[in-house]
Nucleic acid binder design. Structure first.
Length: 265
DNA sequence: ATGGCTCTGTTCCAGAGA
């Protein structure tokens, strides 16, 4: 079972690229971020024609998340991150697909730091940690997939020195991310590729793609039940090199089926 | 330190992103 996350940077601008990628890689689940569209404008029919059921949480101009499932309908479990009744930004969805609980998240950028946007980011991470704590010990696999807007370590950025002080690289968000890993969530890509240079985002500016000056900020965190099934993980880098690309590349994990796991025990 | 690039919408610039 392949579960992917892809910040599309406008689902309307990116629909051809999205459909091409779905056709090529056929993920079982795809978590999308930065839809940048109203609920009414979500291209559900085009995705259905491509073989994907979907749930989505849009909003005008910014943010927006969706969960796609191949040949089935994702069963919505939660809409919005709990803990702040004032939060109206569309950044969090949860769905069950084939016995796996998938959370699709779009963590706030947080720049400039310090400031109210950075405070919102840290508060969001606190709320996330509180919400996912009981999911860690679930017997069912749980995958927290999305654009985390956190560079976990110096190995995850082309030039750490130039990102010091940035909201993606400041100690507080990194500590919040590290605390989840310390608690038992597995950072799937880093776990399987401990020494590799892995990027999932390349800024449009300054020829960052051409220079491979990237960041690893799109992550899939697995609870122990999911980590036990982890077979492979990667980044579909070629998608970033195409015409009119998103600034993020799709990032994915492959989990073995439940039956295969029970046989192997 | 600045600006570079790409997206959206009460658009022909400004705000946000990372």
């Amino acid at each position: 079972m392949r579960i992917a996350t892809f910040n599309v940077n406008s689902i309307k601008a990116r629909l051809p690229a999205l459909l091409q990628w779905l056709e090529e890689t056929r993920p079982d689940v795809a978590c999308l971020q930065e839809l940048k569209c109203l609920d009414a404008d979500f291209p559900a029919a085009a995705l259905e024609a491509a073989g994907y059921g979907a749930i989505w949480q849009g909003q005008k101009s910014w943010n927006g998340v969706a969960i796609l499932a191949r040949d089935t309908a994702p069963v919505e479990v939660r809409r919005g991150l709990p803990g702040d009744a004032e939060d109206t930004q569309s950044r969090y969805l949860e769905a069950a697909v084939d016995g796996v609980l998938v959370a699709c998240l779009y963590l706030p950028n947080g720049n400039p730091a310090p400031g109210p946007k950075f405070d919102y980011k840290l508060g969001w991470m606190t709320r996330l940690a509180r919400h996912v704590a009981p999911l860690l010990a679930q017997p069912a696999p749980v995958v927290l997939a999305g654009d985390w807007n956190v560079i976990p370590t110096e190995a995850d950025v082309y030039k750490p020195a130039s990102w010091v002080g940035d909201a993606l690289f400041r100690p507080e968000p990194r500590a919040a991310f590290a605390a989840l890993v310390e608690a038992g969530w597995t950072d799937a890509l880093r776990h399987l590729h401990p020494d590799a240079t892995i990027y999932t985002f390349w800024d449009y500016m300054r020829q960052r793609w051409q220079r491979d000056a990237g960041l690893r900020i799109d992550h899939l965190l697995l609870n122990p039940a999911a980590a036990r099934r982890l077979q492979a993980a990667g980044v579909d880098r070629e998608v970033r090199g195409r015409e009119r690309p998103s600034d993020h590349a799709p990032t994915w994990v492959e989990l073995s089926a439940a039956a295969a796991e029970s046989r192997s025990r």
